[in-house]
C-alpha cells in the first residue's frame, strides 16, 4: 500500500448524500479482474450530464472529493475505492462514511476524513466560490486546512500508523502466526468444514 502523509490539492464539491457504491462504480464494471482501469467508470451515469461537477473544466486535476453524508453505502465492492484512486482522488471528505467502504479505503491508502457537516458545508462554499482553492489533508497532524478552515479530524491510532507507513496488513498479521496456530488447535470439533483435509 502507498503511504499517506499529507496531501494538498483542488477539490470537487459533491452535494449529494447517500452516494452508494453502485453510483461510484456501476456493476457492469465489476467484471474486470484487475485493480486498475476503473477511472472511466467512476460516477459513470452522472458523468453523462455535461453539467455534472466532475465534468466541469475547472475541476480537472482535482484530487480531494468533498461529499455529502453516508458516502459509500451499499455494496462491498472495493472497485469503488479503486475507481476513485484510478481517477486521481487521494482523499474523500464526508460527515459520515459507510463502514465497509471506509475499511476498503484505508486498506488501499485512500484517506477517508470524517468532518462535521458544518465544516463540509464550509468546504463546499469555499470550493464552489473558488475552484482553484486548495485543500490540505494532513494525516500527521490530523488536520484539514483551507482558506478560513482549520479542522481537526479523528482517525484511530492504529489505522493512522498503518497509513503513514504504507504497511501491508497481511504481513503484519502473519507476524502473529503462533497465535493463529494456537487458536486453530483450540477450535471445537463440531465447527463446520467445507472439505475433509
Amino acid at each position: 500500500m502507498e503511504a499517506f502523509t499529507t496531501h494538498t490539492g483542488r477539490a470537487v464539491p459533491l452535494r449529494r448524500s447517500n452516494v452508494d457504491t453502485d453510483q461510484i462504480i456501476p456493476a457492469h464494471w465489476l467484471k474486470k479482474v484487475t485493480r486498475d482501469g476503473f477511472e472511466d467508470g467512476l460516477f459513470e451515469a452522472w458523468r453523462k450530464d455535461e453539467q455534472f461537477v466532475l465534468n466541469r473544466p475547472e475541476r480537472q486535476g482535482a484530487s480531494v472529493l468533498v461529499a455529502g453524508p453516508d458516502f459509500g453505502t451499499g455494496s462491498s465492492r472495493e472497485h469503488a475505492v479503486w475507481a476513485l484512486q484510478n481517477y486521481g482522488f487521494q482523499t474523500v471528505i464526508s460527515s459520515r462514511f459507510a463502514d465497509i467502504f471506509r475499511g476498503n479505503s484505508l486498506k488501499n491508502g485512500l484517506l477517508t476524513v470524517v468532518l462535521p457537516q458544518e465544516t463540509v458545508d464550509a468546504l463546499w462554499e469555499l470550493t464552489e466560490a473558488d475552484p482553484t482553492a486548495e485543500v490540505t489533508v494532513d494525516l500527521e497532524r490530523r488536520k484539514v486546512l483551507a482558506a478560513g478552515i482549520d479542522a481537526d479530524f479523528e482517525l484511530d491510532e492504529n489505522a493512522r500508523w498503518r497509513l503513514l507507513n504504507g504497511l501491508d496488513d497481511i504481513s503484519l498479521t502473519l507476524q502473529n502466526e503462533a497465535d493463529i496456530a494456537a487458536y486453530e488447535t483450540s477450535r471445537p470439533a463440531f465447527k463446520p468444514r467445507t472439505i475433509t483435509v
Binding site: S76, R77, E78, H79, V81, D99, I100, G103, N104, K107, N108, D156, D169, I170, L172, T173, L174, I180, E184
Partner: peptide, 23 residues
C-alpha cells in the same frame, strides 16, 4: 457475518483472520 472488500478477502485467504475494531 459481514461483508468484506477484496483486500480483506485476500487477508482471510492468507491468514483465516481479520484485524477488526469491535463494533
Amino acid at each position: 457475518a459481514f461483508g468484506i472488500g477484496t483486500s480483506q478477502v485476500e487477508h482471510v485467504l492468507a491468514t483465516q483472520t481479520l484485524p477488526l475494531a469491535r463494533p
